[in-house]
Amino acid sequence: MKWFLGHLDQVWQLMLNHAVLALIPLVVGLLLAIPLGWLATRYRVLYSPLIAGTGLLYTIPSLALFILMPLVLGTGILDPVNVVVALTIYTIALLVRTVADGLGSVPDDVVQAATAMGIGRGRRFWSVELPLAVPVIAAGLRVAAVSNVSIVSVAALLGIPQLGSLFTDGFARNFLDPIAVGILACMVLALAMDLAILWISRAATPWLRTRVAT
């Protein structure tokens, strides 16, 4: 506790770094997963390869991916871009299936009705299918957010500063306080992101919280 109070600024700074490193991949990953998920539902032949292929990405160990990134991207080993790109890959791995399932959960008669009213394919996607897929996509996004917060900490082994640095620091000095603070801060951050996504999802789906007629 004493250590924590003495290092408030440092912990806060690491937490911000951590949040940015977890959030950017989440947003970028979602934006990339939407077209991929759409392809998987639009063309049935692509469904299995896309879902299996992106799912496989998640099995690559994170440390290995962080070390591979500089070779692929030509970045320096300490560049945070490595972490962002690696986590984007993980986010895509988690979200392509979610987006595909979310779009697949849109009732067929609603899509048919939209088509029959002369709503073109693109407009139908943005104004009907995607809004109706929000609850499913948000559920996947919450998993991805928590997963990102946890994986970011591994990047401490490469010396990229974020809450994971408290773990390496604590281990190196055989000092438990920073480790405990790091774990708690990670949990707070994950919870905050989870709640934020939940709140946004609820705000975007007012029709789900109405009294159902009996």
């Binding site: 008669d109 609603v110 009705a113 029959a116 009213m117 002369g118 109706l132």
Partner: peptide, 15 residues
Amino acid sequence: RGIGYVIQSGGLFPH
């Protein structure tokens, strides 16, 4: 757009 279309389940947009 020039043809009205009604289906069994209504097909209303839930959102």
